[in-house]
Amino acid sequence: MIRYILGRIASIALTFTVVSVIVFLMMHAVPGGPFDGNDMPVSDAVKAKLNASLGLDQPLYVQYFKYMWGVLHFDFGIPFQSPGETTLQLLSRAWPPSLILGGAGVLIGAPLGILLGMAAALRRNSWIDYLASAFATLGLTIPVFVISMGLIMVFAVWLNWLPASGWGKPHAWILPITAYAAIPMATYARYTRSAMLDVLTKPFVTVLRAKGLSERRIIFQHVLRNAALPMVTVFLPMFIGTATGSIFVEAMFRVPGLGAYFVSSITLRDYSLEMALILMVTMMFCIAYLLSDIVYALLNPRIRVGGRS
């Protein structure tokens, strides 16, 4: 187990390095620089000076190592689009709304989805199963901005209960979080249903019934525990993936989160911020997969205690 985790950490370091190199090269492979925009014409001399002041005139590999050296010291440079603060300051300002939106969305959507999936699996081919399936399919196929617009129409325009946008007061959070919760809810419902059904058809469930265990005990102790195995590998990464927020929901409800910066840092050639965002997302996913693998191993005795002695 220790050996396994050490190996995984080494591979995360490798992934991280490879991603950083590829992203860095790709960013700079795109023609143009931060001061080539038509809306801000500057003379070539000024441009050269600006580039020199930001170190953009140096060879790429020097720039890369300089940047990564900074990253190792938690220095992600200065975002060109907001030079008055450091990249870290920008992140710590813009991330919390995204985190609240994503976190609350998953924390509400996931349990509801799991319950819905369980109900569907336990009452297979009943109305609740069909309803859950229909809901899950809709949740996954209707784009989130359509859901957002629907919510705004009903609750903000017609009923006038909640604000249509903004992030100031907590009651403004309700609509974006609801819109965002639809996706994890639908996904979790589908996964839970199929994981449960898969376990319910296993021979050992028949054996448990033949032993005279109550149906409740069979479901809650045995079936759920087994169904949780395939579920953790999907759920944890997804859980953490959502912490970066949703560009669409943030745009629809004008939430001042990170989403906008993912787009603007690319179009504005904001190398520092772009790198920081991608490295952050990469690191979070790496950690999420590591955690889910560890949880999987802890839940699964075949991995935890090894094979035949």
Binding site: K202, P203, F204, T206, V207, L208, A210, K211, H222, R225, N226, L229, L299, N300, P301, R302
Partner: peptide, 16 residues
């Protein structure tokens, strides 16, 4: 009580 054909799949794999 019942004894089944395939003992390898008759026990819940996550419990002793």
């Amino acid at each position: 009580a019942m004894v089944f054909q395939d003992p390898m799949t008759a026990f819940d794999p996550v419990f002793t």
